[in-house]
Structures are given as structure tokens and as C-alpha cells.
Design a protein around this nucleic acid. Sequence first.
DNA 1: TATTGTGCGCTAACGCCGTTAGTTTGTCAA
DNA 2: TTGACAAACTAACGGCGTTAGCGCACAATA
Lengths: 193, 193
Amino acid sequence: MARQGLTRADIIEAAIELIEDEGLHSFSLRELAGRLHIKAASLYNHIKSSDELHTEIGYYAISELKKAQMAAIAGKERAEAVKSLADAYYRFGKERPEIYKVILSLPMVRNEAIHTAGFDIVDPIMTAMAGYHLTREQMMHLQRVFRSIMHGFISQEEAGCFRQFPVDVEESYRMAVRGFILLLENSEKEARA
Amino acid sequence: MARQGLTRADIIEAAIELIEDEGLHSFSLRELAGRLHIKAASLYNHIKSSDELHTEIGYYAISELKKAQMAAIAGKERAEAVKSLADAYYRFGKERPEIYKVILSLPMVRNEAIHTAGFDIVDPIMTAMAGYHLTREQMMHLQRVFRSIMHGFISQEEAGCFRQFPVDVEESYRMAVRGFILLLENSEKEARA
DNA sequence: TATTGTGCGCTAACGCCGTTAGTTTGTCAA
DNA sequence: TTGACAAACTAACGGCGTTAGCGCACAATA
């Protein structure tokens, strides 16, 4: 095969494309290599392992999500900001489910670099809540609650766990967000007291 | 190898044990066979495929979770019932993380049998909410919200996503549950109106 | 322009994985 | 006692990630 001077960036890009096209579950180094018209073993000239590539794609996914979220909350405050943020999150999960799954499958535990990238996830939420009169500690707890609701909802819908009942999923989603905003308001009252 | 008359139930039981011991991620038919002192191919005398075994373990996991939940809400009402239910859910996720992961990894989409087993998950939640004056439709939405919060929280904690801040995870959990109860009370007011 | 060194892509192979086909063999019932 | 069934076996296939070692194309240098 004529040499084509592939770079590490080319490989990461192709991997993202492959995941978006075929799904994370059927991703393999051999398939990725096939798309690039090289053999699987040749990938190792650019990456250390499948895991490392996976982490790299994780960086990309997190930065994309953060970008969408920051754009969503720009110029907004309080409930409006939180709703927009949630919508951006929800839309990302629905529109790019495979990339979203990459974020979920990141092993936060061991990888310190990914761990700090986690702040990219936290950042927009903290910003959106800034308009509420909350203590810093309350915000730390509340961002966890927000992420739990969003992640839980998206992944259960994606897994098909919402099909028991024929009621509208978007309506359930709105209730979930409303619940979080109620909690924000309630926490604000507590902080004032 | 001397014949030992293994049954399908023996194999499922051993698989559950193996998953609880070694983790879902490192589960394999060859390892399972090893534990039973047979060859991997011999497993196929009892099961149709790895997927089918996986589904079978899923039934077990769901029934275990339901059992814990039903016990938790017995004789309780309203907020007390919901809190107990949440605690049982949370405890299950923390105490049996690998078995909990089996539930999460079930492909609800295709398998109709598992789909109906999903009602085992819904059932305790609906029961716990029975004391609130809600419409049936509200309850269908609210059980989705409850499951989203619980699943989201457990899986993010398990994945190590809550380590950015040094605040107590249990406290975050209590806030999440409080948020859901606020939503229940708020929905009740709406239903009365 | 000729030479040399770097690094990209190759082949071959290893040890895993799930799975199938075909075979032996123990056990229980007729 | 014999026959049938079922439980276990061996051997093999194609997939996976990964490693070692080779050769060739290209770029920089003399």
C-alpha cells in the first residue's frame, strides 16, 4: 500500500466518524484500519493502545458537549439558563448517542487527565446556577443532582426503558427538569434562612 | 472429566457468582466453564448463547431488585415510602454493583420478555407513589423521573464522576431524593387544581 | 545528486473471545 | 442387557487487541 502519511489526528478523526456511523458497540481497530486502508497493526505506529484512543475520543466528546452547553446558557440566567442547559444536554445525547456513550464509558477512576476534563462537564452547570443565591457547597451537590437526572434520563431512554407506558417522553423530560428547578428554588430558600 | 450432571440452573447460578466475584467486565464463557470444571463448548448443551445467559441473569437481577424494593416500602406511605424505596435502590446499586450493571446492560429494545420484566422495575415505584393524589398519567411520567435520578446517580458515582469536589456523596444523594419529593408534592397540587 | 536515517506500513504470530460440528461416553429406562 | 439420551469432549473457525520484526518510501544531509 502506498504510504499516505497518516497522523495521529487523522486516526482519531476517523475513529470518531466510524463510531458515529456504525455505533460504539461495533467499533474495532481492524474496522478502523480498514477505513484508513491500512492494517490494524499499523495503527500502533500512532497510538499506544485501544484504550488510549478511546480516551482521546473521550476528550473530543467532552469538549463538544461543553461547547454546546456554553453556547446554550450564554446571556441567560436562573431557570432560563438551567432549562437551556438541560435542553442542550438532552439534545446532545439524542443527536449524537454514540459519542455520548463514549463519555459515559470513560473510566474516570484511573485516568487523572480525564478526571480533570471532568471539570469541563461541571463548569457549564455551575455557571448556569450562578444566578441562584446558593452556597458553594450547595452548588457542588446540586451539579451532581443535575448530572444524575440528565444522564439517567438520556441513558434510560436510549436503552429503551421508557416503553412500558405510552406517555410522551418529552413531557417526562420536562417534568424532570421542573423537579430540578424546584430543588434549586427550595435550596435557595434554605440558603437564605 | 467425570460427568457431574450440571443443569441450566447450576450454570446461571455459577455465572452470577462469577460476575459478583470478578466483575461483569471480565466475565467470559471460558472462565465460567473453568469454574464448573468443564470446557466452554460444553456450556452449549445448556444455553443457546452468551446473550441468552446474559438475559437470564438479567431476570435474576431484576427480581432481586424488586424483592428489595417491595420489602422496603411495605407498610409505608408517601414521602416515607419513596425515601425507603430510593434507599433500597441506592443500596442495591452500591452493594451489588456488578449485578446492577447487568440490569443496565440489558437490551430492552429487542427482547420482549425482558421488556415485560421491566414492569417489575416499575411496579414498586408506582406502589410507593400510590399515597399521593396523582393522575395515572402523572405517575407514568414520575416513575421515569424517579428511575432517571436513581440510575443517573448510582452509575455516575460508580463511574467515579463525583470526585471533582470533596463534598459528601450521601448528602448529594439526599438532595436528589428531596428534589423528587418536591416534584411529587408539586405535581399533587397541579392534579388537585 | 547520492546517501543515510527515520518512521510508516507490512506480515506473521500470540492468546484471548464466542461459537459450531462431530464424537465419545456415562447413566438411566425399557 | 441393551438402547437411547444427554453431557461432556476435541478440533476448528473467524473475530478481537496486541507484539515483534522487516522493508521500503521519503526527507534531510553530505
